[in-house]
Amino acid sequence: MRAPISTAIAIATGLLILLGAFLPIPVLLPIRQILLSWTIPVAATAGLIAILNLLSVHWRKLNSARERDYYSIFLLLAFAATFAAGLILGPTDPDFQKIVTHIQFPVEASLMGVLTVTLTYASIRLFQRKRGWLAVLFTASTILFLILLSGFLNISENIPFVKDFLAALNTLPIAGARGILLGIALGSITTGLRILIGADRPYSG
């Protein structure tokens, strides 16, 4: 077994935290609190290392003699401006939060746009390979919902059934978000159990 000491520490730490969470043993409660309090500086250190690695990678891309990537300068300048504003104004300052929001929202919108285009292209390729009544039904329902939700037609205001149907349709993203959160939770539990039994050892690489 590679890295047996790290594996033993990870398994023992996981067992102590789990036992302290499920069993009301007075001895385990302070140990569990100490271990959980250590996770904050460790996670902060890991995040700092990740940020420094990201900056070093883009700095090397910018200074590369063969394949120089000039887009890296935008990331470096944005990081420097955000970091300087955070040091000068403070993380709780409303102006600093406004700056971060104005940077974060366009990035999230761009990622959602890329995701939408990617899923649309993947759906088109899938329907080209497997043509059938499901592809026709999906295409017709997509066009219909886009027309109804775009606001060009005021059918939803005149027909109660359509209005209730569209209201129910608008709740589907909430169900999808909950499904994604459940998937993340199950994946985290599975990964934790695999680390707990020693099947996965990401700390030994």
Rank of each mutant, 00 (worst) to 15 (best):
Q128S: 10
S56Y: 04
S141H: 01
P41E: 04
Q128H: 11
P41F: 01
A43H: 06
A78R: 07
A85N: 04
I49N: 11
T45L: 15
V57N: 02
R60I: 00
S150M: 06
A44Q: 11
I99R: 08
L16N: 04
S37N: 06
R125P: 01
S37I: 00
S150I: 04
L153F: 15
N154M: 06
L137N: 09
R60E: 01
L148S: 05
Q128W: 11
N63R: 11
V107R: 12
A109S: 14
L119H: 06
A44N: 11
A21V: 06
H102A: 15
L87G: 04
D95T: 12
P30G: 10
Y71N: 10
I99G: 07
R68V: 05
A21Q: 14
A43D: 03
L19E: 08
L153K: 07
G47A: 15
W133M: 12
V27Y: 12
F79W: 14
R125Q: 09
L148D: 02
G47E: 09
S37F: 03
I143Q: 05
W59E: 04
T116M: 08
T101M: 10
P91Y: 11
V136F: 15
V27K: 13
S110T: 15
L55Q: 07
T142G: 10
L76W: 05
T120W: 07
S56C: 02
S64R: 02
I40S: 03
P24L: 05
K98I: 04
I73V: 14
A135L: 06
V57A: 08
P30A: 11
I25Y: 06
N53P: 01
R68C: 13
K61Q: 03
I17W: 07
A78P: 00
L119C: 03
I99L: 15
T116V: 06
L148P: 00
F152E: 05
L149D: 09
L15V: 13
L15R: 13
L146P: 01
T101Y: 14
G90H: 05
A85E: 02
I99C: 03
A21S: 15
I51K: 04
L29G: 10
S150A: 12
E108A: 14
N154C: 02
Q97P: 01
F22N: 01
F127K: 06
A85V: 01
F79E: 08
L134I: 12
F152Y: 12
H102L: 15
S72Q: 09
L137W: 12
P106E: 06
L48W: 11
T118N: 03
I49W: 14
A122Y: 13
T39S: 09
Q128N: 14
I88S: 11
G86L: 02
T82A: 15
